[in-house]
């Protein structure tokens, strides 16, 4: 009963907060009264047209595909390297310096270099995103591997768990929160980088479109695309990440 009212209150607050934001926007647009700040309704119309013409879904789809490919490569490689470094102090001491350097190279530099060295190709674009994301995954998973509970690993060894069994039953449940953290921060990072990659060297995708709107000073389209973008991120969070969290953490007190 109590929790029900609380939930109701929460959704009321969410609704109110979003409406307030919309209200401020409407008010500001009225005050400025210029093409550079369109009304919410105008943006909604542009959004609807772009969706119906298939233009927005196409470019959004292209960007999502790039995101999926580069994210998967970065996560798989990052987990493998992160676990290796977390388990082996010598290898870690050697590669730690590389990691620090790669962590501090600005994203833009990697993108430009990839295009210069490998041409304005799809593979160069993916590679640029992967190189930007990889060090973050490695560092997070390395922390997770270092934090593995030695007591439980000893228990597994004593009860003759083989490698696969140890990985599935003992290691993976402990790494899971770190993988989730790497996933969340990774998605946020890749979203931002991938647009720059597209802006600089691709002829489709969200980044390319935003660049086009900038040249045309088409703010309504720009905002319409932005909202599509934000909505997709929220959908991924709600439909994919949260349920995964809940499933994995139900044993916690």
């Amino acid at each position: 009963m109590l929790t029900d009212t609380f939930k109701l209150n929460q959704s009321a607050i969410t609704l109110l907060s979003l409406l307030a934001l919309l209200g401020i926007w409407q008010l500001a647009a009225g005050l400025v009264h210029s093409q550079t700040l369109p009304y919410p309704l105008q943006v909604a119309q542009v959004f609807w047209q772009a969706t119906q013409s298939g233009e927005l879904p196409y470019h959004l789809g292209v960007t999502l595909l790039r995101l999926l490919v580069s994210f998967s490569i970065a996560m798989v490689l990052g987990c493998a390297i992160g676990v290796t470094l977390g388990n082996n102090k010598t290898v870690d001491a050697f590669f730690d310096h590389w990691l620090v350097i790669f962590l501090n190279i600005p994203a833009l530099v990697t993108i430009i270099l990839c295009y210069v060295w490998f041409g304005l190709a799809e593979s160069a674009a993916i590679l640029a995103v992967v190189i930007n994301k990889l060090p973050n995954v490695i560092v997070t998973i390395r922390e997770g591997t270092r934090a593995l509970d030695k007591d439980l690993l000893e228990m597994a060894e004593c009860y003759r768990f083989d490698r696969k069994k140890t990985l599935v039953h003992v290691i993976w449940p402990q790494l899971h929160p770190f993988v989730m953290a790497a996933t969340r921060s990774g998605l946020a990072l890749i979203w931002k980088i991938i647009l720059v990659v597209e802006l600089l060297g691709r002829s489709n995708g969200m980044g390319y479109q935003l660049h086009l709107f900038f040249q045309l000073f088409d703010v309504a389209s720009l905002l319409a695309y932005t909202f599509a973008f934000v909505a997709v991120i929220q959908l991924i969070e709600w439909l994919l990440l949260r349920p995964l969290d809940r499933k994995a953490l139900r044993w916690r007190r």
Binding site: L152, M155, C158, Y159, R160, V170, W251, R252
Partner: peptide, 16 residues
Amino acid sequence: ARIGYVFQNPRLLPWY
């Protein structure tokens, strides 16, 4: 030889 070991702390897997 099968060895059963009761450690000083229980060492149960908390996710099971």
